[in-house]
Design a protein around this nucleic acid. Structure first.
Lengths: 341, 341
DNA sequence: GGAAGGATGTGGAACGTTCCACTTTGGCCA
DNA sequence: TGGCCAAAGTGGAACGTTCCACATCCTTCC
């Protein structure tokens, strides 16, 4: 009644279990006749190799664990595309776990992966404390995606938020904007770097005097409140760089409520290039992160350590790129002219 | 250099491996003194139970496999929330695999789960042919989510698309609309049922003569083209029921391009209640599926079979609900009056 | 005082593979 | 003919657990 094993196949085919093992793994030096016989019996019996037993004896699972902080965030889907593609090419299988933004369940998921003896771990912006992550990295090569790290034992690959912010500011400045404001991302990941990148880019463009940052968050509401703060006092900006796409959408809503049209009255730039940003209806100019490439890179980092090629930690920053869509245009008072510093 | 085993712990603590095993599993009838000693040594050594070995001897893994056709579709994230919650409550762990809409990689992911000896399988609208799914179901209890099935061996839980469509039509009819058109979902999952539900609801409301279906798809473009077909010939509808949210957003774009405002000139209803629909900027009236509940139900169906409580297949249909937002209003010519049949 | 029995602890078999060392077979060449 | 070697196939140990049957010790009770 229970699943057939390699021994059942061997008995039925009249050969040794070793030979069945060889056939199942496609080894050479097996006569064509026996190969066919074994394969036939295996199919008849519905035999399926037991990865559990195999992993135990081989002392390796060929499994990479991917821990996602949040399945709801479409950002990670594309990272995983890259992870899976690269892993498949290198002969590894992937399993995904998630903690849904709850530290306890994230820890549980991590334990599951570790107990299943995944050979490497890719953590996509986990909320777990660094201490736990460092602990895991002692058991198995671990890389952090989209969460910075200075750890000596945990690699990381993130997008260069500073450069991305500079891209946004550069685009707006070259359209002729001077009063470019920033609605920041609060304590969200990368938020500090984006703000810093904004400030430095403003300086580089000779617009330090025009720089203005208001508090926000990585949510629609954050963008919405940011607009309220920006337009209720002081001189209104002609362009807004929001901390991410969600905040940018909140910005769009708030601007519409105030009767300001985009991009005629105000230009808006987001960050992340989510599907939301790409929707026709929104058509948001935004900064894109090379997500699949980040995923591929994460796998490469894990495998470098697995192959024993490296011991020192690496912290990679991928270059973001600008995606120009319909929410940016020259300011109404200064059409299209480029203003360099 | 390699990972410590139960035997290393036993030696160091001066007890038998059996006792270590008992301690690790929190068994009673272990003296407090030895328990502490074993726990201490285990912590010192960084011992972590090997789920691979445990699974092999226990002949069970306590693992449920979830196969996702498409990580990019946020629909599934909430289904998984429900799956994970229910699984955790029942003492099961979950691993997620995905095929990213490619049959071959979906098959690979399925094989991985089966070889890892997951005890049950939840397939979220897989693209795999039914034959392969039925095969899998012979090895392990299998349930299909958001994909219908009449199979005798595979359970399924889906949303009642017919009822959902009726909800949409009922809402529009009660607002006073008569010329309610439907942009359908082509060959997408559930599309036929939604169309059928639309047609029957129109009949029930005495609007059979006004019913009009145009070909579309589950994409923005599908909705966009649908509007072109609807408004280029024949009498223009006062309300559109799009096959899903994406198509509804395409509909909104196309209507805006034609200078028609929503909901003043035309009402629009979508299906799925995605995050996109909820975004302030879009604020789409739509039909919601009880996603987390679908996930929980899927787990229950798997466990029923696992516990040997059931052999016959069950095919469940969950009731959808209407989410009224800003894209629907009474038609301009017939304000608010309810027209029953 | 001794039997009964509960509490605590132990050794070995088993789970389903892989891998290593070994055997058998047969072909080829001097 | 005999010796060698490659090709094909085999048996058993090992992987790290759990579980079962059993052993030992201590308390309790008649």
């Amino acid at each position: 009644m229970s699943r057939p094993t390699i021994i059942d196949v061997a008995k039925r085919a009249g050969v040794s279990k070793s030979l069945v093992s060889l056939v199942m793994r496609g080894a050479p030096n097996v006569s064509e006749e026996k190969r066919q016989r074994v394969l036939g019996v295996a199919a008849d019996l519905g035999y399926r190799p037991n990865a559990v037993a195999r992993s135990l004896v081989r002392q390796r699972t060929n499994l990479l664990g991917v821990l996602l902080s949040d399945l709801h965030n479409p950002f990670f889907a594309e990272v995983i595309d890259g992870i899976q593609a690269e892993a498949a090419e290198r002969g590894y299988r992937t399993i995904i776990g998630t903690g849904d933004r709850v530290e306890l369940s994230e820890a549980r998921a991590l334990d599951t992966m570790l107990e299943l003896r995944t050979e490497g771990l890719i953590l996509a912006s986990p909320i777990l404390p660094m201490r736990r992550i460092a602990e895991a990295s002692r058991e198995v090569p671990t890389v952090l995606v989209a969460r910075g790290s200075r750890s000596a034992s945990v690699d990381s690959v993130a997008n260069d938020d500073t450069a991305g912010a500079a891209l946004a500011v550069g685009h707006l400045a070259s359209l002729g904007h001077r009063r470019i404001a920033h609605i920041d991302g609060g304590d969200g990941a990368g938020s500090r770097e984006r703000r810093r990148g904004y400030e430095r880019a403003m300086e580089r463009h000779g617009l330090a005097g025009e720089a203005r940052v208001v508090a926000g968050s990585y949510t629609e509401e954050g963008g919405w409140k940011g607009v309220r703060a920006l337009f209720s006092r002081g001189r209104a900006p002609s362009a807004v760089f929001a901390a991410n796409d969600l905040a940018a959408i909140g910005t769009l809503s708030a601007l519409a409520e105030r009767g300001l049209s985009v991009p005629e009255d105000v230009s808006v730039v987001g960050y992340d290039n989510t599907a939301l940003a790409a929707a026709h209806h929104i058509h948001l100019t935004t900064v894109d992160q090379p997500r699949p490439e980040m995923g591929r890179t994460a796998v490469r980092l894990v495998l470098e350590r697995l192959d024993g090629k490296r011991r020192a930690a690496r912290h990679l920053l991928m270059p973001p790129s600008l995606v120009v869509r319909g929410t940016t245009a020259p300011p109404s008072n200064a059409p299209g002219k480029r203003r360099s510093r």
